[in-house]
């Protein structure tokens, strides 16, 4: 088949599939961040504005660790193990940091009006951003290419590299682990109980504060993993990266139905796809407007989000 002339190239099926692949990979990353918003919202009804910046700090740590460990010059096997260790280290770091923020800032405000923790979260976001500014400096930093950008498909028509694969594999594994945790463990059952009725949960013997702390840890740890994947995939990090990425992920969480973990996944994939298709077919500068226009339309018709709950309960 002869190659299409450039002005027609974008109507080819390969081009469309390629955009979808990019969209799914980006969407998976957005979904991972969105889960952190959704979990915290589900359990205490707080929109954790600092979540995006928490991920930025995870990326700072990842960059420092890579620099200190000399992972760049290691062989392929050592590099893969290095990536696993990075995921663990940044997961632990972000999880612990998120839990500490809850313990010292949100927990004392648990019985205050909803606005007090919300404003505090915005404050934490700015504090994190300033820490990131000190850590990284004002300019964007490039992240070393640890995972090779080798194409997994033969030929040039479709590109899906080891880097894309890493994103999809890690996100799918974490999602499965999270849904098993929430569905079928003692902690997961306690989390669902606390999110539905904290007082009733306390009255059956659930330590509500501990469950909330665990939720912050898990949501933060997912964010830590996201920070490593983001750094390896996007390869540019900066102290302001948390804001925009956080906004898209939060949008994904609302779109899918905030509080719902499958909803966060669906919302992330939808936003990833819309973003890549819009920037390919309409133009990069329109993507933000298109993503949010679609969000508004969906929310007008389904205010509870795509997978949000709309069950009628008898009182």
């Amino acid at each position: 088949m002869p190659a299409l002339p450039p002005h027609l190239a974008m109507i080819s099926l390969e081009f469309f599939l390629q955009q979808c692949l990019i969209g799914v990979t980006n969407g998976a990353l957005i979904a991972l961040v969105a889960m952190g918003y959704s979990m915290v919202y589900g359990i205490i009804g707080l929109i954790n504005f600092a979540h995006g910046d928490l991920i930025m700090l995870g990326a700072c740590l990842a960059l420092s660790l890579v620099g200190a460990s000399g992972l760049v010059d290691a062989g392929p096997t050592a590099t893969w193990w290095g990536v696993v260790l990075l995921l663990l280290a940044c997961g632990l770091f972000c999880g612990t940091l998120n839990m500490a923020v809850d313990r010292f800032i949100y927990k004392p405000l648990r019985n205050a009006s909803k606005l007090a923790p919300l404003v505090s979260a915005i404050g934490v976001s700015f504090i994190f951003m300033n820490v990131g500014l000190f850590w990284l400096g004002p300019a964007d930093r490039s992240f070393p290419e640890l995972v090779p950008p080798t194409n997994l498909f033969s030929g040039d028509t479709l590109q899906f590299t080891y880097q894309d694969l890493l994103v999809v594999v890690v996100v799918v594994l974490l999602m499965v682990a999270l849904s098993v945790l929430v569905r079928s463990t003692r902690l997961g059952r306690a989390m669902r109980a606390v999110s539905q009725d904290p007082t009733a949960a306390a009255l059956v013997g659930v330590d509500v504060d501990r469950v909330i702390a665990a939720t912050f840890f898990i949501g933060g740890a997912l964010g830590g993993a996201a920070s490593v994947i983001y750094s390896l995939y996007i390869k540019t990090i900066g102290f302001q990266m948390g804001f925009q990425n956080g906004l898209y992920a939060f949008t994904a969480a609302v779109l899918g139905g905030i509080g719902s973990i499958p909803g966060a996944v669906v919302g992330g994939l939808v936003i990833g796809l819309v973003r890549s298709l819009a920037s390919a077919y309409v133009g990069e500068r329109w993507t933000g407007a298109i993503v949010f226009a679609i969000l508004i339309v969906i929310l007008v018709f389904r205010p509870e989000g795509l997978l949000g709950r709309r069950t009628r309960e008898k009182v």
């Binding site: 059952r189 669902r192 109980a193 539905q196 009725d197 007082t199 009733a200 949960a201 009255l203 309960e313």
Partner: peptide, 10 residues
Amino acid sequence: PEGRRIFPRL
């Protein structure tokens, strides 16, 4: 408790 407060979505 008052109002039963069972967990509606469990």
